[in-house]
């Protein structure tokens, strides 16, 4: 049975008309499929069918270990969205509910290879010399979350130093415990600094600086 119903499929197809350059949706699952692994793979395959510029690639997390390592995939279900290059944009857990719009929005941004960040933000990101890993914890019913997710993904697109992950908290309870996630969105930057809620661009950048200077000092 398809994941997307006909109405949604039609809307997605229209949305994807904006995508004019090739984008690969690389999904990781495993033979004995995990919770939502099957659904995530079906979702990716169904979405990829709706645009000539999208292709789905399916890998097995165990059998294709080398590929997982190459893309830095450490848990499943996972989707890497890759455009002209790999910008470090990842979704861990199924992008359902509000996150489905983050998923589509991110596909479009990756296809363009361009963020919609302000000039000031781009200038600050250009200065980065150390890696920045942003993990945005979400639930599918959180209306504030897509803003935080898309912002992290835009920063990843804008800077080769930044990786941006959506992490669906319900599917990775051990990470929710590890990072003490009790409310979403919660953005964890380089393991050390965190942001509660959907913060504006400038505040997120300040937190990135905090994470980097904290690590240095």
């Amino acid at each position: 049975m398809p994941i997307l119903d006909d109405d949604v499929r039609a809307e997605v197809e229209k949305f994807l008309e904006q995508v004019e350059k090739p984008v690969k949706l690389v999904v990781f699952t495993q033979e004995f499929e995990c919770d939502y692994c099957l659904e995530t793979r079906s979702l990716v395959e169904e979405v990829a069918e709706l645009s000539e510029h999208l292709t789905a690639e399916v890998y097995d997390f165990v059998a294709d270990e080398a590929k997982a390592e190459e893309l830095g995939i450490d848990k499943i279900p996972a989707i890497a969205i890759i455009g002209e290059q790999d910008y470090g944009v990842r979704f861990y857990g199924i992008p359902s509910g509000y996150e489905f719009s983050s998923f589509l929005h991110t596909i479009h941004l990756v296809s363009e290879g361009k963020s919609e960040l302000s000039d000031a933000a781009l200038a600050a990101l250009a200065e980065l010399t150390e890696p920045v890993h942003m993990q945005v914890f979400v639930t599918p019913t959180c209306p504030y979350c897509p803003q935080a997710v898309v912002l992290a993904h835009q920063m990843a697109i804008a800077s080769p130093m930044v990786r941006g992950d959506m992490v669906e908290a319900m599917e990775f309870p051990q990470l929710s415990v590890k990072y003490q996630v009790m409310g979403v969105p919660r953005t964890v930057i380089n393991e050390t600094v965190h942001i509660e809620g959907a913060a504006p661009e400038s505040m997120v950048l300040a937190k990135v600086q905090e994470a980097l200077t904290g690590a240095a000092g």
Partner: peptide
């Protein structure tokens, strides 16, 4: 719980 919302501007109608 698996629903797919399109809360972003989708496309030109």
């Amino acid at each position: 719980m698996l629903d797919f919302k399109l809360s972003k501007p989708t496309a030109e109608p």
